[in-house]
């Protein structure tokens, strides 16, 4: 009755040509990305998979930090919802962060990131939760009045239908007006991944073209 394979994480590089076809990465870039993956996935348990602790460690260089957003990003990467990332999930998710990835994919990813309750819209209470978390994580202190006025102003601009919700369409309008809001879903590093991890050539499965 159950498809256990669905939840079983495949280990290893897999087929870089298939991943290259289905992401914005070239075959060489997929192989170089795998070098990064190996580094992160061997930090705590060398099992060829990234768990949440290893992800946090790679992000913050410490596993002691609590972060709402590191959790959110990990959960969005974890498309099989089994608490660990295989290379394929890692590569597909990072593909969205490539400077050449379609802007629609970036808009979609950032919307899901902020739609904490998976309701299909972002509500005021979620925005407040995220602002409070950001301030706490960065050690900044703002009074509740100031936080409320930041959120008021944001909804004034974003909530064009005045229903207290920022749905996907309103999110799209907002980020197209403020492209800086998509800055954190673009990683320039991904353009230079083959030069950052040149050792991939020693493990390459494909001939140079």
């Amino acid at each position: 009755c159950c498809d256990f394979d669905l939840y079983k994480e495949s280990r290893g590089l897999g087929d870089p040509e298939i991943l290259a076809r289905e992401t914005v990465f070239s075959v060489s870039e997929v192989e170089a990305l795998y070098e990064l993956f190996k580094k992160i996935s061997s930090a705590v348990i060398d099992d060829g998979l990234i768990n949440k602790e290893e992800f946090q460690l790679a992000l913050f260089k410490t596993n002691k930090k609590e972060s709402l957003f590191a959790d959110r990003v990990f959960d969005l990467f974890d498309t099989k919802h089994n608490g660990i990332l295989g290379f394929e999930e890692f590569a597909r998710a990072l593909s969205v962060f490539h400077p050449n990835a379609p802007v629609d994919d970036k808009i979609e990813f950032s919307f899901q990131l902020y739609d904490l309750k998976h309701q299909g819209f972002i509500e005021r209470q979620e925005v407040k939760q995220m602002v409070v978390a950001t301030l706490a994580e960065s050690g900044m202190n703002l009074s509740d009045d100031v936080i409320e006025s930041i959120i008021d102003k944001t909804f004034e601009e974003a909530d064009t239908k005045h229903d207290g919700k920022i749905d996907k369409e309103k999110w799209r309008i907002l980020v197209l007006r403020h492209p800086s809001l998509l800055k954190n879903v673009t990683l320039q590093y991904l353009k230079d991944i083959t030069t950052t991890f040149p050792s991939f050539v020693f493990h390459s499965q494909v001939a140079d073209t």
Partner: peptide, 25 residues
């Protein structure tokens, strides 16, 4: 001082959203 920052601009500064640190050695 008037508040001009958009809440999402503030949120996007969160360290947990800065994946570039994945690439740091």
């Amino acid at each position: 001082k008037p508040v001009t920052m958009n809440a999402f601009e503030l949120i996007s500064t969160s360290q947990g959203l800065n994946l570039s640190s994945l690439f740091e050695k």
